[in-house]
Design a protein around this nucleic acid. Structure first.
Length: 241
DNA sequence: ACATTAAGCGATA
DNA sequence: TATCGCTTAATGT
């Protein structure tokens, strides 16, 4: 929110941008044209805040490219990462949750292209064929994921939590590379620790140990999973003897 | 089985 | 050069 090329609309957007995004895939070309003409597109550099927890939800968003990190801040100022959002998904859809403020903060995990609309248009969007069923489907998926993570936090040990988090990351945002599957955006040990409720030190030690056993390969801000099978086995093995 | 503290090192800007 | 990401050891709970 500090430096602004604020609401700069990029060069005229092509309809094909949205035709294959689930919330809009059932719409006619003309409808998509209208929707695009009502939208504002903006590019965010890595690490930029798109909106903040508690702020008035005056807009809702569609991620065209990049990755969004959804996080909350605790009373003591620590960050908790709730989930990551891949391209093609809506976010900041407070109205879908019956809220007038954003329930969490959204930060770009990598350079991102974001489309947004005023929340006042939400009811109009809901009327579009397939829009509401698709958006509630993604809401359901996210709630389910966070629910699973709650159970994990309460029952699993740190090593298994981190293994699970890594598996989900490559499943949702993985990119095939020669050595294996790489998390598609820059991610630090600190980030991974905020995802799994542990410390960056523990994550660092785990990754070092896994790397020695050939399960992963990591450099600064980049993590490649070489052996998902072994990681999966680790993720649901009981406490160590 | 973990967290915390501290120290140090290479990469990055 | 200063900061950041990362590693490791030692120590505490």
């Amino acid at each position: 929110m500090t430096t602004d090329d604020q609401t700069r609309t990029l060069a005229r957007l092509d309809e094909s941008l949205l035709t294959h995004m689930p919330p809009f895939s059932r719409l006619a070309r003309g409808e998509i044209r209208q929707i695009l003409d009502l939208s504002t597109s903006r590019r965010y550099p890595e690490g930029q805040s798109v909106f903040s927890e508690g702020a008035a939800a005056d807009r809702f968003f569609m991620l065209l490219d990049g990755y969004i990190r959804v996080l909350r801040i605790t009373e003591t100022g620590e960050q908790i990462i709730a989930l990551h959002i891949p391209p093609g998904q809506l976010f900041g859809i407070a109205r879908a949750l019956g809220r007038t403020t954003y329930p969490a903060t959204a930060v770009t995990a990598s350079e991102s292209i974001v489309l947004s609309w005023p929340t006042s248009l939400w009811d109009r969007f809901i009327a579009y064929d397939g829009f509401s069923t698709e958006t509630y489907k993604t809401v359901g998926t996210r709630v389910g994921e966070m629910n699973n993570r709650m159970v994990e936090m309460a029952t699993l040990q740190v090593e298994q939590r981190v293994a699970n988090a890594l598996l989900r990351l490559i499943e949702q945002t993985g990119r095939q590379v020669p050595e294996g599957i790489e998390v598609d955006f820059p991610i630090t040990r600190q980030d991974l620790s905020e995802l799994t409720a542990t410390t960056l030190h523990t994550v660092s030690r785990l990754l070092s140990a896994w790397e020695k056993d050939g399960l992963v390969k990591s450099r600064r801000k980049r993590i490649v999973v070489c052996d998902p099978q072994a990681l999966l086995a680790l993720s649901h093995s009981g406490p160590k003897a």
